[in-house]
Simulated scan of single mutants.
Amino acid sequence: MPCFESPVDGARLHFVDHGPATGQVAVFVNSSYLGTEMWEYQMLPLAEAGYRCVGFDRRGHGRSDDVWGGFDLDSLADDVDGLLRHLDLREVTLVGHSVGAAEVVRCLTRHGSGRVSRVVLVAGMTPGLVRSADHPEGVDPALVETGNETFRRDRAAFFEDGARAFLALDLPGNELCDAYVRSLINRCLGSTARAGTALGDLVLTLDVAPELAKIDLPVLVVHGTHDVSAPLELTGRRAAQLLPDSTLKVYENAGHGLFATHREQLTADLREFMSGS
């Protein structure tokens, strides 16, 4: 099983590397709770089309080590950079979903853009979700704390009860079979309770707004109109306004899980963005 050692603490982090070794490279950074399997509808078609697609399981997720520490944003960003260095990847399109989008941003502002040429923020939690002095329109932190407490009390119910809203299954065009939804819930349960709790706490303090203005690369921001986890106006649209060189694509009726419900649209947009057209 391919792994690399985290530069933070030596934790073994599992990665996948699909497609031709010489193809244009896309590196995928996952949502909370999920491993690289979440990107199956993007990574496999892109690899078949000649792109090199790389992804890794965040610490405490998928097949990576079950560890206690390293869930602060700096350490998570160091793990992303560690993968780029381990495989000596260059001219990368760095793709992050949800909290993974914040890891992408921090990786760039912490380690520079020498290995990265383009960025995609998919349903990102960036620049930050929670209300603060600089973000008075944000979500009441008490609501996030309540959700975190629900997770601590019964994370199985948390995933089960939240799946329909996560995928916006009650909206037209978002039909997914029950088997897929069940598999997604099971994948979420495969992450550790410690990892989920730590990332929930991270969302409470997440604020990368000042960092977005420092990203000197083309950025594609993809977001759904019905994302209840990271509402469009608080995250995706705000991120696009703060970034110096951004393109915002809004998916109608899409929720946070648009990588599944809008799979073909997302894959096509990634391919178009990577081609520079």
Rank of each mutant, 00 (worst) to 15 (best):
L84K: 01
L84E: 01
E91H: 14
E149T: 10
N148H: 12
P45H: 02
H111F: 02
D79N: 00
R52G: 03
E103C: 08
H86T: 02
H111C: 05
D88N: 07
L129C: 09
D78E: 09
R152E: 11
L94D: 04
V120S: 06
D57S: 12
T93K: 00
V139E: 13
R118W: 02
V122P: 08
C53W: 07
P127C: 12
N148L: 11
G147N: 14
R131I: 01
V116G: 05
D66Y: 07
L87E: 05
A142F: 03
V119Y: 12
E137W: 00
R110C: 05
S113C: 11
M125N: 13
D81K: 07
H61T: 12
S113T: 15
L76Q: 15
V54M: 07
D140T: 09
H111Y: 06
H61Y: 02
T150Y: 13
G100A: 04
E145N: 07
L143T: 13
D88M: 01
A123L: 01
T93N: 00
R106C: 08
R63L: 00
D57H: 10
G114N: 14
L83M: 08
V122I: 11
S75R: 13
R59C: 05
G62H: 10
D134R: 15
T109G: 06
C53A: 14
V122D: 14
S98H: 13
G112W: 05
G128P: 03
E137R: 04
S98E: 07
P141T: 14
G147D: 13
G55M: 03
V54S: 03
M125P: 03
Y51L: 14
V144R: 14
V99L: 14
V92A: 10
A133S: 11
D78H: 00
R85I: 08
L83S: 05
V130C: 03
A77N: 07
D74L: 04
V104F: 07
C53M: 11
R110F: 04
E48Q: 15
E103N: 11
D78M: 01
D72R: 11
S113I: 10
G124R: 06
V122G: 09
S117H: 13
R59G: 01
M125C: 14
L76S: 10
C107W: 04
M125Q: 10
A133L: 13
R59Y: 02
R85Q: 15
H135K: 11
E91V: 06
T126M: 06
R63E: 00
P141L: 10
V119S: 09
D66R: 15
A101M: 02
D79Y: 00
D140N: 15
D88E: 14
D134A: 14
L84A: 02
G138M: 09
H61P: 01
R110A: 10
V130F: 03
P141G: 06
S64F: 01
R90I: 04
L83T: 13
R59V: 01
A47Y: 03
G60W: 08
V144I: 15
L46Q: 00
T126P: 13
P136E: 07
R52M: 03
R118L: 02
A77G: 07
E91W: 03
P127S: 13
F56S: 02
C107T: 15
H135V: 01
G69H: 05
G100H: 06
D72H: 08
V104G: 09
E103T: 04
A133P: 00
G62I: 10
G138W: 06
